[in-house]
Design a protein around this nucleic acid. Structure first.
Length: 357
DNA sequence: TGCAATGATTACTC
DNA sequence: GAGTAATCATTGCA
């Protein structure tokens, strides 16, 4: 490959080929640069740096001879292209910048992507649970961030070195033909723009890596955990003791979530949220309604359990006075024909003749 | 390994 | 916004 082609390639663009994040999270190739855009697009940053350093190491005369030829051939074309591409704020670049900033990849360090981790927590309805997964997420995001900054630094360094080199050559060339400062300035800005487009590819790759990371870690279905036995028992106890109206209030849900979390945190180190309690009751109501027969045994079991608990409580409470009055709803054997009170929405439908019971 | 159980999500209604 | 119904995706057991 001759020098002219090399320089053209250096200005053409690179990808992040060869870099990967620990754990198999490879940075994907940027869109539109999967090889269809010429071999130069696949050039690794290391090769670019090597080329630049090779040029720099050459004797000035040798490099000058080649570059003078290159500039004489291409400078007009580059100027025309440069004028066409000039001064248009790229919305794509702005989007990428905003996203990298929001994810905590660019900009000041936010604890390795704590903003995104917080968003993840919010998305799953829990600020504190899944802490193991989130710390893993943060670690991976931190790796992406590190690679991004390393590459960015390399690009900037390469850009500066290349600019300096070109400036030196132009100065050398100015001995043989007049070169105005404006011309040099223009050439520098063209080089900077070319390197900016390389940076954009880096940003795009980084954004894609973050997206993949997010989808992998934040898809809640993937990390579904069964509730502990104790937590399920607490929820079931409430459900069957309120079978006539298994719609816990917001306070009751919070209370249940707290109770379940206490029992769960002893073993697993996670919590159960109000949203999860809502999910649980939603699922339970539907599944109970769909197959009352199947749940009858379970219902009887919990009803008996509740009755025993209530009896003990009552016995303890009334022992001095020896009175006898059960306080727990649905104590004793359950009536299967009345699963639970209709939800207000269903109640309306029922009243209007829309539902048969 | 197949399958039932189960937590989460989605689309929809009110 | 809360609830239902259907469905998805994962877990855990025989």
């Amino acid at each position: 490959m001759d020098e002219q082609a090399r320089i053209m390639q250096a200005l053409g663009g690179v990808s992040l080929a060869g870099h990967s994040v620990q754990g198999g999270m490879a940075l994907p190739p940027p869109h539109g640069h999967d090889g269809s855009d010429g071999d130069g697009r696949k050039q690794d940053i290391g090769d670019i740096l090597h080329q630049i350093m090779t040029i720099t190491d050459q004797s000035l005369d040798e490099a000058q001879a080649k570059l003078v030829h290159f500039f004489n051939l291409n400078v007009n074309i580059v100027f025309i292209r440069g004028a066409q591409e000039e001064d248009s704020p790229d919305p794509q670049l702005m989007r990428l910048d905003n996203m990298l900033l929001a994810e905590g990849v660019s900009g000041p360090e936010k604890g390795g992507g704590s903003a995104a981790a917080a968003a993840a927590a919010a998305a799953t309805g829990s600020p504190t649970d899944n802490s193991i997964e989130h710390s893993d997420y943060r670690a991976k995001l931190s790796q992406i961030r590190q690679i991004y900054h390393t590459e960015l630094e390399k690009y900037e360094q390469a850009c500066n070195e290349f600019t300096t080199h070109v400036m030196n050559l132009l100065r050398e060339q100015s001995r043989t033909r007049p070169i105005s400062p404006k011309e040099i300035e223009r050439m520098v800005s063209i080089i900077h723009r070319k390197f900016s487009s390389i940076q954009m590819q880096l940003k795009q790759s980084t954004c894609e890596a973050v997206m993949i990371l997010r989808s992998r870690f934040l898809d809640a279905r993937r990390k579904r955990r069964n509730f502990s036995k104790q937590a399920t028992e607490i929820l079931n106890e409430y459900f069957y003791s309120h079978l006539s109206n298994p719609y816990p209030s917001e306070e009751a849900k919070e209370e249940l979530a707290k109770k379940c979390s206490i029992t769960v945190s002893q073993g697993v180190g996670t919590t159960i949220t109000v949203a999860q309690v809502s999910n649980w009751f939603g699922n339970k109501r539907i599944r109970y309604k769909k197959n009352i027969g199947k749940f009858q045994e379970e219902a009887n079991l919990y009803a008996a359990k509740t009755a025993v608990t209530a009896a003990h409580a009552v016995a303890a409470a009334v022992r001095p006075s020896q009175t006898n009055s059960p306080t727990t709803p649905n104590s004793g054997k359950l009536k299967s024909e009345s699963p639970f009170k209709l939800h207000s929405q269903q109640e309306k439908q029922y009243k209007s003749g829309g539902i048969e019971t």
